[in-house]
Design a protein around this nucleic acid. Sequence first.
DNA 1: AGTAGCACCTGATTGC
DNA 2: TGCAATCAGGTGCTAC
Length: 289
Amino acid sequence: MGLESHALGATITSVQILRDSCVRRSPGGPIGFAAAVVGARIDAVVRRGKFLWLDLDGGALALSAHLGMSGQFRVASVPAPTPHPHCRARFTLDGPEGPLALDFLDQRTFGYLDSEPLIATPDGLPGGLGSASPLVPDSVAHIGRDVLDPALRRARVLGQWRRGSRGIKQLLLDQTLVSGIGNIYADEALWRARVHPATPASGLSGRAAGALLEASREVMAEALAAGGTSFDALYVNVNGESGYFDRSLNAYGRGGEPCPRCGRPLMRAVMGGRSTHWCAQCQRTRARG
DNA sequence: AGTAGCACCTGATTGC
DNA sequence: TGCAATCAGGTGCTAC
């Protein structure tokens, strides 16, 4: 269910914080958070990487969210009287078609909600996907543009990657350079571009780096298409329940299974503290040209 | 400056 | 049977 189609133009009429830690980054705590957002009108739903925010009341303030690894928003016109056990916050919205419940669910509690001022982007281009507004919340300013963002400066990202001494997988996961690529999709992009995850980024040719960025874009676009077009599609079923995960993952989580491309057993190891899966046969140190 | 390592957290799974 | 250890994920902080 798309958040945008239901939330746009609606007014937040109440907030119920079911678990205080979901607003742990909000200086005013549950009370301050509620005071900031209740009564506000939702003017836009915007995403950059794994950050999501709602422009409120003409763009001075945002309700920002990070969904962590298991967070999601659910909209219901007839909400369950007892919220889901993983529901951390429940908003009541007053939309054109009547009241709606907007639940913030987050099983593993890495996600959070906050209210923040919006600040201008340095380039004056739209701050994220979903809105033409050149504003982003404070906490998003240091995050690089989304891999699917038309305003992404591609050549700049490639230069930053190739300047790093870390393995290319770690750079792929560095959200300050380009955002949106998580651990699962990083492995998939590397597999697709035939790049070994431990390749020193400085050793990648420009061509190889370009192929990897393009593969990342493709993987993210396909994941979004498979999960729908809603903003929360990236985060739904991160535990592996979705059809996309079942059918389309070529490398992630498949250590020991045959590589779908060459049949050799896939490898698994921890790199940069994250589980990493690759094919030693067809992922060498260079990308296909 | 750039990088490495860890804390945060919870439920499912595995091991004893 | 029951309890304990392990694991997964993204970000932000501290320490080098």
